[in-house]
């Protein structure tokens, strides 16, 4: 049953969210309170062409999406969520010729707020590109779980 729900969440994010679709984000794992999302390199994602580095905005988008998905695995289908705040520490630059992965974990949930931590990495999970903390507000109104 959970698997069905996760498949629905994955389908919603990948097929229905224009920006997620446009960036070509892929979901590599979805579990209770956990989401792993990746993008393969595309030239429009660069911020620094001279050093072939991925732009910080790409990391923000990928991390925000993964965090939103992690929260969606824990909430009711009739709930919506919105990002309240998001912080990213850039530990090392992301190079343009490798895929970028964001792994998010919703580690605490109250009736109103979801607390999420996330990391981003490329080919080596031990060499983090970014560390992130974020909070989301849960909204009971509306239908369909959606990201910010």
């Amino acid at each position: 049953m959970d698997e069905d729900r996760y498949a629905k969440i994955a389908e919603y994010f990948i097929q229905r969210i224009p920006h997620v679709k446009d960036m070509g984000m892929q979901i590599s794992r979805l579990d209770t309170g956990l989401a792993v999302v990746c993008v393969s390199q595309q030239s429009f994602m660069l911020g620094n062409t001279r050093h072939n580095l991925i732009n910080g905005g790409v990391i923000s988008s990928l991390v925000d999406t993964a965090c939103g998905m992690a929260v969606c695995t824990l909430i009711n289908e009739s709930e919506r969520i919105a990002t309240l705040d998001l912080r990213i520490d850039n530990l090392r630059p992301a190079v343009g010729d490798l895929p970028l992965v964001a792994e998010a974990e919703c580690y605490h949930m109250t009736p109103q707020i979801a607390f999420v931590k996330a990391v981003a990495y490329q080919d080596n999970r031990e060499r983090l590109i970014a560390n992130s903390m974020s909070t989301f507000i849960r909204k009971k109104t509306g239908s369909g779980s959606t990201p910010a």
């Binding site: 969210i17 224009p18 920006h19 997620v20 911020g47 732009n55 910080g56 905005g57 790409v58 923000s60 988008s61 990928l62 991390v63 925000d64 999406t65 939103g68 919105a82 990002t83 998001l86 990201p147 910010a148």
Partner: peptide, 13 residues
């Protein structure tokens, strides 16, 4: 509504 990551990317840039 706009994607939160898009707003973040716009402001960072």
């Amino acid at each position: 509504s706009l994607h939160g990551g898009v707003i973040a990317g716009f402001m960072e840039n």
